[in-house]
Nucleic acid binder design. Structure first.
Lengths: 349, 349
DNA sequence: GTGAAAGCGCTAACAT
DNA sequence: ATGTTAGCGCTTTCAC
């Protein structure tokens, strides 16, 4: 038994129409701010709606218009500054345009990503914004969307597909800058800790690393490239591998901050001086990068903006203002942030 | 112009019925696994549905059944390990029970919280799961829900209201343990950095701090209680205030880790030895607590479990399995994690 | 075990 | 500027 339940009856536009002695159609038009409705009538409608506690029935409306005004969002995890900013940016744009967001986490598995996609498909989202899971290696689970012409936009972790727009930063260039910076600080044997190379973000950062070596006429040593899952634990393991190397490397560039930090700390505990023995750089500008000692050199990029751009492009497409089918890639700016972990000439700070 | 768009026509139960020469009613029953439908018929229906690429129209279904099977979630921010785990826990339970989640961030403002609540109300969520914003001081924006008998469950940051269930940890006890631990390490003048005392979590942690002092016959010095917004910047400011104190305190207990860490680091830079001069403790077990040097003593509590419990209780209530109107508060376990920042007798590690 | 038919609340084409 | 009407796709009562 429900203890509290007053006024459980839902008010419909028919109730409002009856009270006002007008037709339901006019009420509907008024509520939707249709230009052909008399201003006075509109006012009456709105105040009566308010008074009676009316709330629009989205389902009836969606059923009728064959649109949901809902955007699906699938991300690997929500627990980063970056993702939270992305979502905030999307929400801002979506709300302004009258769209709702359905958000879900793939928890880095392709399987859950597929399930989530199916749920979104059944909820008939008008479009999808996706950042891929760690181990996704095809996008068959988005085929249903593409077949139906429902737009899918990837951001950050994108998939190269002619039918899908991607919003990214220039990971190659950013990584190239990081590596060049380390080289500029005197590093000659730089370890690169990377992630799953299926993901553009890690593949591109690796490319940037390689290009920078080439730019500075340094040979590429495959033994210096460690492919990991970029977790905190992976950082510890990487440190153990590094300690086995002979000679020791003189620089480490990790593809994310979490891994960089745990690797740095493990090496430090083993008596390695940072940055004198080994200079360090990460990627993402996570809060931890400002806490670890020494503070971590890293790359910052704008989550909120990425979210806004992704959502805005999708909505413009849905509203017919712009067509993203012709847009393949949108590149946002990023920034190298130099901190003590890589600075061997402190006077340069 | 849409470049790709094949099979844009939606399949309905009527299409399936026609192909199978049965009635739409039977198709509907079959799809919903109604017991009164012949097993063979069911099989035929399912395979035909699959073949034709049928997907159920949630809107028509919701419109008809007058239920949405959707749960609204409003949180201050998504960017913490804790919140991300909470959401993951909720998703798990909700998916299993056939419910969907609509998630939104209040970004710590009561205003956005109210807007979000209104959106949720209009989307006719079956129930609401809320963790309050920093500055919310009443719950009028949830009145619409309560009036209609739509259940609202608070978690972590709860509001004391007879009509609302709350899921929390015992913040008083946890804070009391933290403080007692500091006292056990020889602290006598312990600063407590707290947040907005409207929020139960901070008010209760303050209480726990006070009770522990009482338990150990220590006088309460109001000057040692710093009310802040618990941000990273607030930690720095708190450190500056602490440095002005004469005599210096010998312990700091901050109501979250972010603030504790920045305060700790600022004091360290000023030449204070941690934990010898000032012992430190935080709250939340954020990843940074394991990165800062020395590692931060803190309180861990289970986000995923809190999410699961909140969602499960809501769903049980909605399904009529249990009634939460009688349940006022559910308390989950938490755990003191002792690390070097508070350990003055290293042999105890 | 299956079918017929009504109706959930809204919108939009058409009519006035 | 407003009204009439049909129908979006589904579920469910009542009938057989």
């Amino acid at each position: 038994m429900q203890i509290i339940s007053t006024g459980n009856k839902e008010i419909t536009i028919y109730d409002i129409a009856r009270k006002l002695n007008i037709s339901p159609a006019t009420v509907s038009r008024g509520l939707n701010d249709h230009p052909a409705v008399n201003k006075e009538t509109k006012k009456k409608i709105f105040s009566m709606a308010k008074e009676m506690g009316y709330r629009s029935n989205t389902f009836a409306s969606n059923l009728r218009r064959q649109r949901t005004n809902t955007i699906g969002v699938i991300v690997p995890r929500l627990n980063s500054n970056f993702m939270s900013s992305v979502i905030a940016g999307m929400e801002k744009v979506a709300n302004q345009a009258g769209y709702n967001l359905i958000i879900s986490q793939s928890l880095e598995t392709a399987k859950k990503e597929a399930t989530n996609a199916q749920t979104m498909f059944n909820s008939r989202v008008d479009g999808l914004l996706v950042s891929l899971a760690y181990d996704t290696d095809n996008i068959d689970h988005f085929k249903d969307f593409l077949k139906k012409g429902i737009p899918v936009i990837f951001f950050d972790r994108v998939f190269n597909h002619k039918q899908c727009t991607g919003i990214v930063i220039d990971n190659i260039k950013a990584a190239q800058e990081v590596t060049a910076h380390l080289i500029g600080q005197g590093c000659r044997r730089i370890v690169h800790i990377t992630g799953n190379l299926k993901r553009n973000v890690y593949a591109d950062r690796l490319k940037g690393y390689k290009y920078a070596l080439t730019d500075h006429n340094l040979a590429l040593d495959p033994n210096l490239i460690l492919e990991t899952n970029l977790s905190v634990e992976a950082g510890v393991e990487a440190a153990e591998k590094i300690l086995q190397m002979n000679p020791l490397p003189d620089g480490v560039f990790a593809a994310n901050d979490a891994c960089a930090v745990s690797c740095l700390q493990t090496l430090k505990q083993a008596g390695i001086a940072i940055p004198q023995d080994i200079a360090f750089a990460g990627f993402n500008n996570d809060p931890v990068s400002k806490v670890v000692e020494p503070n971590l050199t890293t790359v910052d990029y704008p989550g909120s903006e990425m979210g806004e751009v992704a959502a805005q492009n999708l909505i413009n497409h849905l509203n017919g203002t712009a067509n993203i089918n012709n847009t393949n890639t949108i590149i946002l700016r990023s920034e190298l942030i130099i901190r003590e972990s890589s600075l061997r000439h402190p006077e340069h700070i």
